[in-house]
Design a protein around this nucleic acid. Structure first.
Length: 87
DNA sequence: ACTGAGCGT
């Protein structure tokens, strides 16, 4: 399950994000989106969890949680747009 | 060093 995490503090790094979600279950991957121009964090990222139950638990609990002074927003990620649009 | 809506180099 793809999880969208936003409103993150810019100081937050992938390792901390990964650690936050690992408290609720197995995390496949955790990624913070980095601005290509500045090389700094965009303040949001994505976390992928194999187990949907653990993912939902993490979303329910981590959403609105204050981390580094910022309440982060955790929701299920939008469906990834397909390269090919079937007609 | 700085900033603050939003779905990924």
């Amino acid at each position: 399950m793809n999880i969208f995490v936003a409103n993150l503090n810019f100081k937050l790094q992938e390792d901390e994000l990964l650690d936050l979600f690992e408290n609720f279950g197995e995390v496949t991957s955790a990624k913070i989106i980095i601005d290509r121009e500045t090389g700094r964090s965009k303040g949001f990222g994505f976390v992928e969890m194999d187990n949907d139950d653990e993912a939902n638990s993490a979303i329910a609990d981590l959403n609105g949680q204050e981390v580094h002074g910022r309440e982060m927003v955790v929701k299920q990620a939008e469906e990834r747009p397909r390269r090919e649009r079937r007609f």
